[in-house]
Design a protein around this nucleic acid. Structure first.
Lengths: 214, 214
DNA sequence: GTAAGTGTCGATCGATCGATCGACACTGTT
DNA sequence: AACAGTGTCGATCGATCGATCGACACTTAC
């Protein structure tokens, strides 16, 4: 086999590495995936990896931070949009949460072993990004409780229940299975309203339903 | 240091190994935990490990299967108890689920990387045990929908939402934090009733409330 | 045309991994 | 006293790990 042509493919290779590394980390875990596994999957040598990333940790860090930055960019503006009702915003965030964590499933790397693999600084960076989303959802739930749109005893617990419910989907949802994704989105919007005892506000109902159906 | 005394401590050492291994696997992940890490934590040599387990995989398998067997033994009889109302059974299972997954938190090892670490037979064994619990909860939700006690569009989706909501708790609940565990249990019982739109059945209400408060 | 910069590779490093082996201590049986 | 069975250990195996190095191909700038 001839030497791989070294035409400058710019940041393309870096993106390929991140994409394949995400999948391997997601399936096997970070520790069980070797640099050579990733290199083989992208059909490069292991040494080439080190021209694009300083070490294995940096590959993981890029994936984790990259996803969370995009995720927050998509959700935070919606959560903080004061012009819309709480229920309306909640519906849309649930849709974004489900669709984004399904579309980019392998990139959503969380859990203790992932944290353990990162340096202290990287841990704090990742946790801070997650906390920003968490706090924004919590603020929305508290706002809903204040306006009477939602009815929960403890906003903190209800928020965790909601987020865990949404985060669990990617572990069992299979696109080729019994369920259509839009079906899942609609059901989860309804389930979330049940969970938080969303009030059927007559004035905003049509608006929310329209947004939910998109 | 003198040679470790070899007084027969029966299955005690095996239990210690499993306990410490659980914690390390939970914190760092299976692949990132070496046989020597476990041995050091129990203060034995790595060779001694192999007199109690055939290999590293078998340690993981023992933990996973051991927990799920106990978990099913505690929950399945409740879920299938035809003499009680659906809501009543649901409340108690939620309590057991939360308390057991908190008490034995490190033993609850799940996810893709864990599956990847097990052999095909072991995977199927573990999945089968989890499926038995899942199916029993699903059957209860469907029963509740049939009797009118619960009101959900798709029982399968609602069941996954409920289970994910419960499984997420151990990732964030800290015993020394703001929340008392009994508080969490009570809130989740209420949240689950919201989620599944449990009907306030006049006849069984007092029974269910009593069971919930235990 | 030649020098600098970039990207890729094979070869290889020391460290660590899971697992094995023989030696030895202790207990209980005969 | 001799023996078998069990549990523990240090030493060590081959394999694989993350990471480094120098050599080489190719592009671009001058």
């Amino acid at each position: 086999m001839a030497r791989k042509k070294s035409l400058d493919q710019g940041p393309v290779l870096r993106g390929q590495i991140l994409a394949r590394a995400s999948e391997l980390f997601y399936e096997r875990g970070y520790a069980a995936t070797s640099i050579r596994d990733i290199a083989d999957a992208v059909e490069i040598s292991s040494s080439t990896m080190y021209h694009h990333f300083t070490n294995k940790q940096e590959v993981l860090r890029s994936i984790v931070v990259g996803f969370m930055v995009d995720f927050n960019a998509a959700t935070l503006p919606v959560l903080a949009d004061g012009d819309r009702t709480v229920t309306d915003r909640l519906d849309e965030v649930i849709r974004i949460h489900i669709e984004m964590s399904d579309d980019r499933r392998p990139e959503l790397l969380v859990g203790n072993p992932i944290r353990y693999a990162l340096s202290v600084d990287e841990q704090e960076e990742g946790i801070a990004l997650q906390a920003r989303y968490h706090d924004a959802v919590l603020a929305l739930v508290e706002e809903g409780r204040a306006t009477g749109e939602l009815d929960v005893r403890d906003a903190g617990i209800a928020t965790m229940a909601l987020l865990d419910m949404l985060n669990g989907i990617r572990e069992w949802y299979a696109p080729d299975g019994r369920l259509d994704r839009e079906e899942v989105v609609q059901d989860y919007i309804a389930l979330a309203r049940n969970l938080l005892r969303a009030r059927d506000t007559a004035g905003t109902e049509s608006t929310a339903a329209t947004a939910a159906a998109r």
